[in-house]
Nucleic acid binder design. Structure first.
Lengths: 234, 234
DNA sequence: TGTATTTTTCTTGTCGACAAGAAAATCAGA
DNA sequence: TCTGATTTTCTTGTCGACAAGAAAAATACA
């Protein structure tokens, strides 16, 4: 299936291969195009991208260090499974980072940050309108990432990006289960958050960030309990 | 200098090379044995460890993804500089994580966690007694990492470990400047934290974690302002 | 037929070599 | 002597090939 699609027969610039593979694999993993647990074959990837195994391997090492794929020594490498048991911990961290980054954005944002945030919100809104689930998820993450960037704390921003990435897989699961129908509510909540940031209202930003996070948590939580009833018994 | 010291002439198990190089380089960077900004030569490392450049390269990729080294494309790779300008953001994140992890440990710790934490505290205390600055720094980080582990939130724990790692370099700078004299106070504060965790006193844990963090921040802050007066003018 | 053992196959980990890109060194011209 | 172009050198990025480890397949034996 992959050999019929040589990703890029064009000449690539020296050093660009790793980034290309990394970005693409990362997106495919986060969009659930590569299912959790599915095997990753280095030689197949090398053939698909028309390059040797060395740059492929470096991209895989990066993905491993981000926890997106796992390797059994001397054996297989596969897409990491979503950690359902650690989900509670994940939501805790996510909500806290929603709060912290939104707060900081209200404090430290500059005019150009607001433009950037609004641009991402526009993209998100477009994605919602056109019912493009994958775009919705990606642009939503980008929106919140832009807020974190406006908060001017690289440590929080990096951590938050990581959480958002992991969350993209869960959100994908969520939307899939609802046949890609959309919660329009998110768009409105985003607007409120932007308003609070623009007004430099730290308390409102904190409160809205918390509410937004908890709302998502609650929705995904509903999905999971439903799934657990159907699939597994704990 | 390096070629006189072939790190390991023994046979290594297949797959162990990367971890060996990674662990050693990481420690050398965090202990400031490799100065920030100093160049890293792949072939020299390959010679030093008696292996080819491939596993060296994978270790370097991991270190890059952790932000400990940086690479200029097609040119040099070097140890990352300590981000003094972003220090304020760092301290914010560190104090918050001190609070959160200590809180969670008070809530969720199990008996074996306490044993583990106390063991690390004993090591830290030994290091303080024997005036071993490097050991103090490493065992201090391990102590707090153990607390985070007891909090049962892998996301916080991972983030915190990363912050503690970055902090090891600053602490090293700090102790160096005081000729490795020690703040005995840390030992006592650690004991208080342990007591609060053992008593499952969440509020006390939060407060002590915050105070402990801010105390360290203040000390390092003093060091930096002193340095800034001496070295650079901003 | 079922189980233990050997053989094969397949994937990963490592290696040595080569090519490209950039800096340093050399050289030419004024 | 200084400046600009050219050559050399040095480091990194990529490649193809080989070896080791483990699973799967095949074989032998009861």
């Amino acid at each position: 299936m992959a050999d019929s699609d040589p990703e890029q027969t064009l000449e690539r610039k020296r050093g660009s291969g790793v980034k290309l593979v990394y970005d693409l694999l990362r997106d495919e993993i986060l969009d659930l195009k590569l299912a959790p647990g599915s095997a990753i074959d280095e030689v197949a990837l090398a053939a698909r991208f028309g390059m040797s195994r060395t740059p492929i391997r470096e991209a895989l090492v990066r993905l491993v260090s981000e926890g997106l794929i796992e390797t059994l020594p001397n054996r297989s490498t596969m897409v990491s499974n979503i950690d359902f048991l650690g989900m509670h911990a994940y939501f805790d961290a996510l909500v806290l980072m929603y709060r912290v980054t939104t707060r900081l954005a209200a404090q430290h944002h500059r005019p150009e940050d607001l433009e950037n945030i609004r641009a991402h919100q526009a993209e998100f809104s477009d994605a919602v309108r056109s019912q493009d689930a994958l775009a919705m998820i990606a642009t939503n993450a980008a929106f919140h990432s832009a807020i974190a960037a406006a908060g001017r704390n690289a440590y929080y921003a990096g951590f938050f990006d990581r959480l958002l990435g992991e969350g993209r897989r869960m959100l994908r699961l969520y939307y899939q289960s609802y046949e890609d129908r959309l919660p329009n509510r998110f768009v409105d909540e985003h607007e409120e958050i932007i308003a609070a940031i623009a007004a430099r209202d730290v308390d409102a930003a904190d409160r809205l960030g918390k509410a937004h996070g908890e709302q998502i948590v609650e929705q995904i939580g509903r999905l999971l309990t439903r799934h657990e009833r159907q699939d597994i018994e704990l």
